[in-house]
C-alpha cells in the first residue's frame, strides 16, 4: 500500500448526501477479478450519459457535461469534498479502489459509512470527517475560487486551507500509523501469530463444535 504523509492537491466536489457505493462504482464493474482499473468507471452512472459496460473504452463514451468531475477546472483533483454519510451501502472495496485509481488520495466529508471508512485505509485513501459547518465552508471556498487546493498532513492531523487556516481532524492511532508507513496489515497481524494460536486452542476447548465441522 502507498504511504500517506502529506498530500496537497486540487479539490473536487461530490455535492450530495448519502453517496452510496453503487453510485461510486456500479455493480457491473464488480465482475472484474482484478484490483485495478476501476478509475475510468468511478461515478460511472452520473459521469457518462450511457450505461457503462466492463471492459469498454471510456474515451468514446458520451460524458455528462453537468457532472463536476467532468469540468475542466476539477481535472487532476486528488481531494474529494463530500457531504454526510459518504460511502454508505455495500462493503465493496471496489469503491476505494475506484477513487484511488482515479487519483483521489483523500476524501473529506461530514461523515462516512463504517465499512467504507475502514476500506479506505487499506488502500492508501485517507477519509477525513470534519464538522458539517466546516465542510459547508470548504464547499463555499472551493466553489468561489477556481484551482482551490488543500494540503492534508496526516502526521500532524491537519487540513490546511489556502489562507493558511489549519483544521484538525481525528483518526485512530493504529490506522494512522499503518497509513503513514504504508504497512501491510496482514504482516503486522502475523507478528501476533502466537497469541492467535493460543487463543484458538483455548476457544477450541471451550467451543469444540465450532471446529472441524466444514470439511
Amino acid at each position: 500500500m502507498r504511504a500517506f504523509t502529506v498530500v496537497s492537491g486540487l479539490v473536487a466536489p461530490m455535492d450530495r448526501a448519502n453517496v452510496d457505493t453503487d453510485l461510486i462504482i456500479p455493480k457491473q464493474f464488480l465482475k472484474s477479478i482484478k484490483r485495478s482499473g476501476f478509475g475510468p468507471n468511478l461515478f460511472d452512472e452520473i459521469r457518462y450519459l450511457d450505461e457503462g459496460q466492463p471492459g469498454q473504452d471510456c474515451a468514446d463514451r458520451p460524458i455528462n457535461e453537468e457532472f463536476p468531475l467532468n469540468f475542466p477546472r476539477y481535472k487532476g483533483a486528488s481531494i474529494l469534498l463530500a457531504r454526510e454519510n459518504f460511502g454508505c451501502g455495500s462493503s465493496r472495496e471496489h469503491a476505494p479502489w475506484a477513487l484511488e485509481d482515479y487519483g483521489f488520495r483523500c476524501v473529506i466529508a461530514s461523515s462516512f459509512a463504517d465499512i467504507f471508512y475502514n476500506n479506505c485505509f487499506k488502500n492508501g485513501v485517507l477519509p477525513i470527517a470534519l464538522e458539517e459547518s466546516v465542510v459547508a465552508r470548504l464547499f463555499d471556498e472551493m466553489y468561489a475560487s477556481e484551482g482551490y487546493e488543500l494540503t492534508v498532513d496526516l502526521q500532524r492531523q491537519r487540513v490546511i486551507t489556502p489562507s493558511g487556516e489549519e483544521l484538525s481532524f481525528e483518526v485512530d492511532e493504529f490506522r494512522r500509523h499503518c497509513l503513514l508507513e504504508g504497512l501491510d496489515d496482514i504482516g503486522l497481524t502475523l507478528q501476533s501469530a502466537e497469541a492467535i494460536r493460543s487463543y484458538e486452542q483455548g476457544w477450541r476447548e471451550q467451543s469444540p463444535w465450532l471446529f472441524d465441522v466444514i470439511k
Binding site: R35, R92, R175, H177
Partner: peptide
C-alpha cells in the same frame, strides 16, 4: 469471547469463527 489481543492504540485483534465467501469480493 473473541478478543485475542487488546492493543494500547485502541485497536483489538478479534478471532473469526466463520468466513463465508462469494465470487464478487474474493478473487483479489
Amino acid at each position: 469471547n473473541h478478543l485475542v489481543e487488546q492493543r494500547d492504540d485502541g485497536s483489538a485483534l478479534i478471532y473469526i469463527d466463520r468466513q463465508l465467501i462469494h465470487e464478487v469480493t474474493s478473487p483479489q
